[in-house]
Design a protein around this nucleic acid. Structure first.
Lengths: 216, 216
DNA sequence: CCTAAATGTTGTCACTGACAACTTCGAAAG
DNA sequence: CTTTCGAAGTTGTCAGTGACAACATTTAGG
């Protein structure tokens, strides 16, 4: 009898799933996006995929380990998305950092499971190597872009550590509010992107030209 | 035999705790501050307080209900703290809103359990009446202060909804990062308060005078 | 004084995460 | 091709949990 859960198309179910780690991560992302992290259960994931309740432990040390792996994957994908957004914004470091901030929010809205994993306290204090590396890479990306924006005239004289903390806080805080706050539920992505742009424009203007012409 | 858990000083343990709801909330705050929300267990709280495992259900519908009650209590206390900070800042609406932002971060750092409850997804989607009212009161407080600051010259021409979202995102995002990010663990409160001031000063200057003299 | 509600209790169930021991498969080495 | 070992499954068990039911005690109100 063919099984829908087998990883080998057209083959009878075998003892070895063949791709269980990936399947667990994909299914976990679905469950989190639909029902939140609190609804995540290793046993339920195993049932959904059609393996025994102890099979996940061959791939993840524990539940927090799976969440950390999911967050690491999300962090890597977000770095790629941020770099693409910066590239698309051209050469102006101010425009690039503005694009980075907007993409941070947009990525979180489009990848709800990753966003929820990022802000989960157990994930945040996890010492998983891949996650720590992904987070460090993310911090380097943001830091380099913040330094370039400052060199181009954004908040000269302010400690770049503070600028990085300020801009990251605003972007991730906005993403979190758009995800959780009831008043934004169901908001179309385009409208949320416009709102994200308005917020990020208060953090850093959309271009160096806009920066020079700003008067408060 | 006297029991340390009895609510009536000097009285033998009675069947009725007398103050169980408050005791559960207080102990929950301790556990959350020490070990995080994931470590919270109704049964463990009951054991700690010396009542049976089902006693909490007489005061809280379920675990999420207890968390929501804790968050509502924290929200009310935060509103009081924000109002006190604004009063202490004087009459300048820009200075008052700046003080509000700083106090939001300071309060979260000093009340870790409340801060963790605020950002917990189950709490955020909870429909507990007291929590919704507290949250609405908080939003009114922030909204009125944002409108006054705008009237005094802060970001004229920007939708005040966007200003409120921007400033709330920056303050709560910074609080969350200071709480969770490993590099800020163990930072003395005074140093964290200075950092909070630097961040909030990027959101809104410390006074209307500073607003007028800003050039970017 | 009586009654009903509040607030406890004991008990049970299903589910969970974690761990142990065993089984099957696959890859690598000879 | 065979053997061996590790990977990756399995079944089973335990302790703890949340939730619910039914019972017991206390308190407040009529």
């Amino acid at each position: 009898m063919l099984s829908l859960t087998t990883s080998k198309a057209g083959h009878p179910m075998t003892y070895h799933h063949g791709n269980l780690r990936i399947a667990l991560l994909d299914r976990a992302a679905e469950v989190i996006a639909e029902s939140g992290i609190e609804a995540l259960s290793l046993r339920a994931l195993a049932r959904d995929i059609g393996v025994s309740h102890a099979a996940p432990s061959r791939h993840f040390k524990d539940k927090a380990d799976l969440l950390a792996a999911l967050a690491a994957e999300g962090q890597r994908r977000m770095i790629d998305a941020l770099n693409e957004a910066a590239e698309a914004a051209g050469d102006d470091p101010v425009a690039r950092y503005n694009a980075l901030g907007r993409e941070c929010i947009r990525f979180s809205l489009m990848n709800r499971a990753y966003a929820l994993a990022f802000e989960n306290p157990e994930v945040q204090r996890h010492s998983d190597k891949a996650l720590l590396e992904a987070r460090a890479a993310y911090n380097r990306t943001v830091r380099q872009a913040a330094e370039a924006a400052q060199q181009a005239g954004w908040h000269p004289g302010v400690d770049v550590d503070v600028l990085q903390l300020f801009s990251t806080a605003a972007a991730t805080g906005a993403a979190s509010m758009l995800i959780h706050d009831e008043q934004y539920q169901g908001m179309p992505l385009e409208e949320a992107e416009r709102l994200a742009a308005q917020i990020i424009n208060l953090v850093i203007p959309p271009s160096s030209n806009a920066l020079r012409s700003n008067r408060k």
